[in-house]
Design a protein around this nucleic acid. Structure first.
Lengths: 214, 214
DNA sequence: ATATAAACAGACTAGTTGGTTTGTCAAATA
DNA sequence: TATTTGACAAACCAACTAGTCTGTTTATAT
């Protein structure tokens, strides 16, 4: 008797597809590879998804969007100091990644670069991810301004977009650099920039050990 | 009698291929499309290139590498103030681009995100491009420090890499944003950061009209 | 003028790729 | 219990795709 669990099957497909897309891109991802990795057949896959595109869309909407919520939006919403929290998230993400993971970069950025110019459905979905992402950063910065820890002469929305862009740029450039030191050099500059967003009050509140490495 | 010009034929192939790759990526580029666009045949194309990969490699080595030399390395080498020159190049590039060009992004970044994790040949070539690019920025910053226009407490190499990464990040994020204002918002923050790299002397030397828009 | 090699033209092919179709089996439903 | 439907299995297919092969035309060297 074969155990049937449609939800698990669907998740297995998406997980395998994301892993393939992460490395090879959406166009480079092959449906047959997903089948081999999951042990499923065409019948199963095309029962859950109308076509390859639908798999890609579901990954952005469900997995990637959810990931950003957990890793960024949640922590930033709870944070009293957005700059410190931003740095902490970056350092956590960095710590959990080895060389081959650095080479693969950020799935959101990868898909944006590859698909947004040629598939409006992807573009719309990825734009939505960016909006919630930057929205959370902007809101946390605004709260930081109101709390007096962040400089009040900055534009939260603009800085939030710039922060996210710089982060994606760093991860993106690091993809083609053999030495991991390049990544850390860029991260160091980003950290300096982030700290420059703090007000005098915010600076004095920051733990010493967060500043000492600069 | 058909006029034969092998050099021109080769260039035509590379130009058409770059245009296709710029929009669809290397994997999304189709050899047949190149043939249709150029009016050439398989025989001609495979006389000049051993395979599709060789076309991609040639584009990075010859066209993209050359482009960076002309647009960035040259101007920066001649520049007395790297910060001002950097801003000027950015603004020139921005001014020459419409919405659909913004959507396509930077070919160097696109290829990096797509190909560097799955093709070592691409990665090596793109890394070389980044090295000359960041090298030129770093050298100009160092000269700026020596001339007293750039702050002497910054690390030229690290800042150069960060600047390039941020630039690529901005261009990359802008690819999936409908409103062009997002691009300009991010660019404004980048400009602020660039200006923050100037020393007191450098700041006083900067034209008023370059600073007024901030 | 002739030989040789470079620069093509274009039909052909082998392997791939996303997707379809038909059928089976288990579970919910009536 | 009978029946319908959801969840798969797997053979099949048409379109595509990079690359090859043979032949032809043009340029170049002698």
């Amino acid at each position: 008797m074969v155990v049937r669990n449609p939800d698990e099957t669907r998740t297995k497909i998406l997980d395998a597809a994301l892993d393939e897309i992460h490395l090879r891109g959406f166009q480079g991802m092959r449906v047959d590879h997903i089948l081999k990795r999951t042990g499923l057949t065409k019948g199963a896959l095309y029962h859950h998804f109308t076509n390859k595109q639908a798999i890609g869309y579901a990954i952005v909407d469900e997995i990637l969007g959810q990931d950003i919520m957990e890793r960024w939006v949640g922590p930033l919403e709870k944070s009293a100091n957005p700059v410190v929290t931003f740095i902490e998230i970056c350092e956590n993400e960095r710590a959990g990644k080895n060389a081959s993971q650095i080479e693969k970069g950020c799935p959101v950025n990868n898909l944006t670069q590859e698909m947004s110019p040629i598939d409006e459905g992807f573009r719309e979905r990825l734009e939505k991810v960016y909006q919630t992402w930057t929205g959370a950063i902007a809101e946390s910065l605004e709260r930081g301004i109101n709390n007096g820890v962040v400089r009040d002469d900055i534009h939260p929305e603009k800085v939030a977009k710039f922060l996210l862009a710089s982060l994606q740029g760093i991860i993106g450039v690091a993809k083609c650099c053999k030495e991991e030191s390049v990544l850390d050099d860029m991260a160091e500059c980003m950290r300096d920039y982030l700290i420059s967003l703090l007000s005098q009050e915010g600076l004095s509140q920051v733990d010493l050990d967060i500043l000492k490495a600069s």
